[in-house]
Design a protein around this nucleic acid. Structure first.
Lengths: 160, 160
DNA sequence: CTCAGATCGTTTGTAGCACAAACTATTTTG
DNA sequence: CAAAATAGTTTGTGCTACAAACGATCTGAG
């Protein structure tokens, strides 16, 4: 009845009418499937998020990183520990604030990220298979607008 | 920096480019916010899903219900226990299969559901505030197509 | 300059949920 | 009838979110 690999879909007609439900259910699938792909890279979704943010720009503190990917500080510790033990991320002292760490992506981290992006591309292709190119763009744009609405509700959300 | 009520958005530019990420993040918010609303009704999202499916039609077994809302059998037990102790759902014997229960929605259950639907309506309005009417319809339709794609990948998913 | 309060990373503890395994009672199948 | 499958349940494990507290450090008011 349910493929143990992909998990139970659970798309009952009575629930699928609600956009919010569809959103949360699909989000669950998307992250679950992607997380399976990441396993081959010894990465968890949290680690993946961290690598992406770190690759994006200047070094950040653990708290900034945590806010960016919606993870609380106490959970950050272990995640960064893992990334550091894999040699993908470096904790360096922050010269201007000795409380904070400055997180850096290593060369190995950059390479792992590049490999992961191939997986991400495939996962996205698989997920959005039912949609045409323009439809995918439109879906993305609509989701983005909804996301911005949430940010607006949520003051000071993405300042860092 | 982050409103403790709504939770950390975490919509970093580096991640927001991926539709899959947007989907899972937005899904997380949607369910979180709705779950806060449900607290005033003494319901959890799981219970809410169960009530909806039960209201939709003929009595189902716990396993059928579980599959419909993506919850495994062992977690179903406690959920139904709660619903039953609240007087919202009834476990009756299934005459044609003495292993299985036939789950029924009580009158109180129907009333609670009706109240919840008002909350759901408001939550959806709040979530989709940035979108116009036609845009909301389009978003829903696109999500539905993606969901159907997942079902297709996932054999025998929603048979029950 | 001082000192009270805030912030950063960290540790610890609690609670909820997903998942797997095992068990009984029953049904189905060969 | 015997063997395998299924429904509900119990139990245990592991992960994650969340809250609270702590030392070290920074900041700002006076």
């Amino acid at each position: 009845m349910v493929d143990p690999h992909t998990g139970a879909p659970g798309l009952h007609a009575a629930l699928v009418r609600h956009t919010g439900y569809l959103l949360s259910r699909l989000g669950w699938f998307a992250s679950r499937r992607f997380s399976e792909r990441l396993q081959s890279l010894d990465l968890t979704p949290r680690m993946w998020g961290a690598l992406n943010v770190l690759a994006a720009g200047s070094p950040v503190s653990q708290q900034q990183l945590g806010r960016s990917i919606g993870m609380d500080p106490s959970s950050m510790v272990g995640t960064i520990d893992e990334l550091e033990s894999l040699g993908l991320v470096e904790r360096r002292p922050n010269p201007s604030d000795r409380r904070a760490h400055a997180l850096y992506l290593t060369q190995a981290g950059r390479e792992r990220l590049a490999t992961g992006r191939i997986e991400a591309k495939q996962a996205q292709e698989e997920l959005l298979a039912p949609l045409s190119g323009p439809e995918r763009a439109q879906l993305h744009e609509l989701l983005l607008r909804v996301a911005q609405g949430i940010d607006a509700t949520d003051p000071e959300a993405v300042k860092d």
